[in-house]
């Protein structure tokens, strides 16, 4: 899964912590950045790197919403459903988005372009109902219509993966999928 170069980077990173297990999230992100989600093989690898058990890693992944165990579409759109966004109509936005993709929330849309996830507060209450695209781009003041338009655009967008090597292993979990892309 990782090149020797990348593995070396991870080991080096882990060595900065007093305990290896402190770097578990970083390693999980690295797996996710590499293949889009964390698969069983990735878990085994992080188990070896950090000394944490499979269960402990699964506990972490299910606790943090930004880590995922299943493949996602080429884009991930997290639509906030916490209080401010809810008041401003996020439920309708989520329903419209779900209808547009033709699959349930959390699944990959038929075209493969996107996975929609409900999200806890993104801290964008002033732009409610808000969403986060690919963990980076904020989308503000969504309406059922604007979300459908956004999803149409994503359907059109060609997917490209460009970066490789240790430069893609980001420190905060910024997806390498977004790295080669212009914003």
């Amino acid at each position: 899964m990782f090149t020797e170069d990348e593995l070396e980077h991870l080991r080096e990173h882990l060595s900065h912590y007093p305990e290896r297990r402190a770097g578990a999230i970083y390693c999980l992100y690295a797996v996710q950045d590499k293949i889009g989600y964390i698969d069983d093989k990735g878990i085994m690898m992080v188990t070896e790197l950090t000394g944490l058990s499979k269960t402990q890693l699964e506990e972490l992944i299910t606790f943090f919403t930004l880590l995922r165990r299943r493949p996602v579409g080429r884009n991930v759109l997290r639509i906030c459903d916490s209080i401010s966004c809810h008041v401003m109509g996020s439920r309708q936005v989520l329903e419209a988005a779900e209808a547009h993709t033709g699959v349930a929330l959390g699944e990959i849309s038929r075209t493969g372009s996107v996975t929609i996830l409900p999200s806890i507060c993104l801290g964008l209450c002033n732009h409610a109902p808000a969403a986060l695209l690919n963990d980076e781009d904020e989308v503000s003041r969504l309406t059922p219509e604007s979300v459908q338009k956004l999803l149409d655009e994503l359907d059109q967008q060609p997917f490209q993966q460009s970066a490789t090597g240790s430069q893609v292993i980001a420190t905060s979990g910024h997806s390498m999928l977004t790295e080669g892309r212009d914003h």
Binding site: S53, T55, Q56, E58, T62, F63
Partner: peptide, 18 residues
Amino acid sequence: GDDFGVYCSGQKTTFRRS
């Protein structure tokens, strides 16, 4: 033991084996 643990958070918290 390390084959049993706590999954998810908040209302979804559940206790099970991996």
